[in-house]
Amino acid sequence: MISVVILTDGPYGDRAYDTIKEEFVADFIQLEPPSGMFLDDEIELPKDAALKIENANIIISYISHPDLALDIVYRFADKVDWIIVASWKGDGFKNQLESKNNVSCPYIMCEIEENGNPIYDEFLSKIGKPKVELILENGKVNDINVIRSSPCGSTSFVADYILEKYKGKIPDEEILPREAGLKIQHYPCRAGKMRLFTDEECKKQMASGFHQDTFKEAIEK
């Protein structure tokens, strides 16, 4: 089984860890950010943390300090299969991070999908852009299978609500997906707060749209 390390230097990443550890071997590592915003000296990492990071298959970085985020990418990109940078500020910094071929900086974590890398795709088979399956009995909702969950766990949150409300009922292909999309607004999404100069409401609308689409596709199937 692939191993995933979630890194943070602030309040983000704990929900992703809680979701990912249900599917993969996972570690959550809190790092101390450097005292200055930009530093020239090499950043020292605790030895045990560095060992866990370099032995991982996938790193997910919620690090907000730019020097620390960049140091992690440059130091470990050649040692792991893939790095997902969940927190980044500005297209220039994004381009710098993605100069490594196995680094991606998604706009929002619940949009990530397979890209052809076998390890990355194995991870994305369970975590990423939401995907659900409606299990029907005599045309009525009997159960909901979360095939792929958004990293924050909101997909299961929505699926539980829809199942509770619609179990034993015939799913309406317009109303049910719309309710799924609306319900995501009740889940406290942090995506917009992880980067400056971004529209938090836009990201919530994107997350809502992804969940609405997956429930619509599940009904159509």
Score class of each variant (00 low, 15 high):
50 A>E: 15
31 L>C: 04
95 N>I: 11
56 A>F: 06
26 A>K: 03
62 Y>C: 05
35 S>P: 02
5 V>Q: 11
33 P>G: 07
9 D>F: 07
35 S>R: 15
42 E>A: 15
27 D>E: 14
51 L>V: 13
24 F>I: 14
95 N>M: 13
97 L>T: 00
75 R>Y: 05
5 V>N: 06
56 A>R: 06
87 S>V: 12
30 Q>H: 14
67 D>R: 01
5 V>C: 15
18 D>C: 07
44 E>Y: 13
81 D>T: 04
81 D>W: 00
53 I>S: 02
34 P>R: 04
29 I>M: 04
6 I>R: 08
11 P>H: 10
97 L>Q: 02
68 L>A: 03
19 T>W: 00
104 S>R: 10
78 D>W: 07
52 K>F: 12
97 L>I: 07
91 D>M: 12
85 V>C: 08
86 A>S: 15
91 D>V: 10
16 A>S: 14
60 I>C: 04
16 A>R: 01
85 V>F: 06
52 K>M: 08
98 E>K: 04
70 L>V: 07
52 K>C: 07
63 I>H: 00
25 V>T: 11
20 I>G: 05
88 W>F: 12
65 H>F: 00
72 I>T: 08
102 N>E: 09
60 I>A: 05
26 A>M: 06
15 R>E: 13
24 F>Y: 13
12 Y>A: 11
76 F>D: 01
88 W>I: 07
70 L>S: 10
101 N>H: 13
98 E>L: 09
82 W>M: 08
9 D>R: 08
56 A>M: 07
65 H>A: 06
76 F>G: 01
40 D>K: 15
9 D>P: 07
52 K>T: 11
60 I>K: 01
26 A>G: 07
32 E>F: 10
94 K>C: 06
